[in-house]
Amino acid sequence: MLNSKTQSGEDSLNLSQAETDALFAAVSEQLSLNTFNPDDQDLLKQMIESMGDSRGMVRLSFAEALGKIGKPAAPLLMEAVANHPNPVVRRASTKTLTLIADPIAIPTLVKALLNDEDTVVKASSVGALAKIGKPAVPALLKILGSNEYPESAKGYAVWALGFIGAEAKEYLDREINSDSAEVRAAVVGAIAKIAQEGTEEGAFNILINALTDPSEIVRCEAAAALGSLTYRSAIPNLIDLLHHPDWETRKAAALALMKIGDGAALEPLKAALTQEEEAGVKAVIKLAISQIERQLEEEAWE
């Protein structure tokens, strides 16, 4: 029978590899026999500390065991994420919180995403937020709407929202009307991932509506998304953008039409080329025309 209190103080947490192996063997037996006591705080602390072991398989084994224990282990894992001096333990703890997916960890994970110096901890934290799903959406949107946080954190937040997908849509539908152009652009990016999954019929309509957004970054994000999704129904809307006053928007529209690759865009692109004065946009329109023509020729030979 495992006795987690054979030593006292911090010494009880600093186990040799042999002691760590013995600890895992005892924990595994208790879990298999359903005799593990999830209220044993000292034992849970030892398990978390053992995730700093130099052996990757040992770290993984303890993470999986703590994942099986579940919510009773979450508060101590959160404490480790927030304060443990060893980044290896913080990494393993965030990954274990991903397995548990308890919404109670959201504030701790957000703080780690924004403040931890270790990039693996940041990435693992956002992975845990994504796994938690819908309850994490408001916190992720708050990151997007703030001017205090770095672009890297916002990029992570966009990824997480896209991962959460259709579960986040009720929030995304509301935030597409946010006063912040940055938030609207991020929402467009997340909506694009939902459209890609094909899980939500109205996702494409949101993307098309975003083509007329007052902000350049939102229009360009929507055009890029529709191009990547090769959504042919957006061709008329993208053609309209070829004459937009903003040259970045015209460029994004031409690139999107090139990616869609439909012959219906050829004549409008050629007409836009004769009127275009911006050198960078001209180059993109020429490339789009060339690409579409080549694609049509290849299709004719098939």
Rank of each mutant, 00 (worst) to 15 (best):
Asn14Gln: 14
Met51Ala: 12
Asn147Trp: 08
Ala74Ser: 15
Pro85Ala: 14
His243Met: 09
Val137Gly: 08
Asn209Lys: 14
Leu33Met: 03
Lys95His: 13
Glu248Lys: 06
Arg294Leu: 15
Thr274Asp: 07
Glu182Ile: 01
Asn205Gln: 12
Pro103Leu: 07
Ala112Phe: 10
Gly52Met: 05
Ala256Pro: 00
Thr35Met: 09
Ile104Lys: 12
Pro138Ser: 02
Lys68Ser: 11
Val281Lys: 00
Ser228Gln: 14
Ala190Val: 13
Glu293Gly: 02
Ile260Gln: 10
Ala288Gly: 04
Thr119Ser: 14
Ser124Arg: 01
Gly52Tyr: 03
Leu257Asp: 06
Ala265Glu: 03
Ser4Cys: 11
Ala195Ile: 09
Ile143Pro: 04
Met1Asp: 11
Ile106Phe: 02
Val58Glu: 13
Ala157Tyr: 06
Glu151Phe: 03
Lys131Tyr: 03
Glu167Met: 08
Leu44Thr: 15
Asp246Thr: 09
Ala26Tyr: 01
Phe62Leu: 15
Thr274Pro: 00
Thr212Phe: 06
Gln275Thr: 11
Thr274Met: 09
Gln17Thr: 13
Val281Glu: 00
Ala25Glu: 15
Asn115Asp: 11
Ser146Ala: 09
Ser124Gly: 12
Leu296His: 06
Trp247Asn: 12
Glu267His: 00
Ile208Met: 10
Glu167Ser: 15
Arg55Cys: 07
Met258His: 07
Leu207Trp: 08
Val27Leu: 08
Thr199Tyr: 01
Lys71Tyr: 06
Thr199Cys: 04
Ser228His: 11
Gly162Ile: 10
Val183Met: 07
Ala101Gln: 14
Lys169Trp: 08
Arg232Pro: 02
Ala195Lys: 03
Ala80Glu: 10
His84Phe: 14
Leu238Ile: 12
Leu273Ala: 07
Thr119Gln: 08
Phe62Asp: 13
Leu2Asn: 08
Gln275Glu: 14
Thr96Gly: 05
Ser50Leu: 10
Leu257Asn: 01
Leu255Trp: 02
Asp173Gly: 09
Asn14Cys: 06
Ser54Asn: 15
Gly261Arg: 06
Ser16Arg: 01
Asp262Gly: 05
Asp40Cys: 10
Ala123Glu: 11
Lys193Ile: 09
Ala105His: 13
Leu140Asn: 04
Lys131Asp: 00
Trp159Cys: 01
Glu302Phe: 15
Ile194Asp: 03
Val281Arg: 03
Lys282Ala: 07
Asn147Gln: 12
Ile191Leu: 09
Asp173Asn: 15
Pro87Tyr: 15
Ile100Thr: 12
Ala223Phe: 10
Ala253Pro: 02
Lys95Val: 02
Gly261Lys: 05
Ala22Cys: 05
Asp39Ile: 01
Lys270Phe: 00
Leu241Asp: 10
Val188Asn: 05
Ser4Val: 00
Ala300Tyr: 02
Ser61Lys: 14
Ser16Pro: 00
Ile217Arg: 09
Glu297Ser: 11
